[in-house]
Design a protein around this nucleic acid. Structure first.
Lengths: 192, 192
DNA sequence: GTCCGGACCGTCCGACGAGGACGATTGCGG
DNA sequence: CCGCAATCGTCCTCGTCGGACGGTCCGGAC
């Protein structure tokens, strides 16, 4: 019941249990795997250690099953729900972070050869096309209207970002970054 | 001279020293602060510990200044240059990661109120507009043609992504995600 | 039924990252 | 010559990472 620092990961656990009801770490692992895990990755071991921490903090309760597999089911407490709601309502401390090794390689491209950049771009184009196909597939499976399902809203952000990066790498491969800028300013003119 | 695992951070250090020449950790801190630091953040302490690791691995050499402030200047070795070039040329292990607490909050928005979402969106719009202004300013300062300066290419990616997220939050605030989809498919039609 | 292989599930550990606290150094203004 | 703020470096604690490893369960072969 001591004070602990709650990290974004903590809130993923709290949020998942809040949405799904009582869950075992393995349940969480699967649920995370095909949802929030796409844009906020972390190792599965944390889904075992983090609930423990949260239980100590009084935000979850733990029930151990007697049977063979020592399985623990966690439920959210009212304190946990409150903590989650407070966090959601709080102004964003938002430390937006986009970490892409490919972006780093591009940044240091002076050290390499033009060929390297071309290959990098090609790889990235393929990767992001794949991702887009995956996400679009998910949208279709769950109904095309994003308003239908609040959890799909986040997916729209993912798709939008994937398209942006794809456009960038394509422009880079085509040697036409100026065209990218042009399309950008033209496209956002009706918004600004 | 032992084998160490090289993380992306390691390559940031190697790359920076390779671009700038011999540097002290503090030099790196400043250089990183207004370049690669924008899209790949890490605490300054690592700019002191990481070069040490790399020196042990034989990728850097270290020269300690005798004077008052115990200042260390690191230079890259040929092994270091080689490691860097190999990494740049290697196919991307790319684990693209976009971590945005705001995105998490959005994902769990069912737990909160519609008001929360509206406030979140408003905050994010402001944040990303700020970022865009900052980046556009950098572009203007360094010359508008991205091809001018290879290090500005990466900046273009940052800008493109910022615009994408901005479009998303604006659409969300306007309750018009469908419009976002429409514009997207229309815009990429000429590419696919 | 028992044995075996593969899928399922949980824990551990060693290395690394995060980031704030704190201490030392410098040089500038008084 | 002193004090104070800016500059610079180190440390410490906790969290994260991710892979290795070890149990548990279930279905099929015999």
């Amino acid at each position: 019941m001591s004070a602990v620092r709650l990290s974004p990961t903590s809130y993923v656990v709290l949020g998942m249990i809040s949405l799904r009801g009582p869950s075992t770490p393995y349940d969480l692992k699967r649920a995370v795997g095909h949802s929030v895990g796409y844009f906020w990755h972390f190792p599965h071991a944390q889904l075992y250690s983090e609930p423990e921490r949260l239980t100590e903090a009084g935000l979850l309760t733990c029930e151990t099953e007697a049977a063979g597999r020592r399985r623990k089911t966690y439920s959210i407490t009212s304190a946990g729900t409150e903590a989650l709601e407070t966090w959601i309502a709080s102004p964003s401390d938002s430390h937006f972070q986009m970490r892409d090794p490919a972006e780093l390689k591009l940044f240091f491209n002076e050290v390499g050869t033009p060929d390297d950049v071309a290959r990098l771009a090609k790889g990235q184009i393929a990767r992001h096309e794949e991702r887009i196909a995956l996400y679009e597939g998910m949208v279709e499976r769950f109904g095309p209207e994003p308003a239908d399902n609040p959890r799909l809203i986040t997916l729209e952000l993912g798709i939008e970002v994937e398209y942006a990066t794809l456009r960038f790498w394509r422009a880079l491969a085509a040697g036409d970054l100026a065209g990218l800028r042009r399309r950008r300013t033209a496209g956002s003119a009706d918004q600004a």
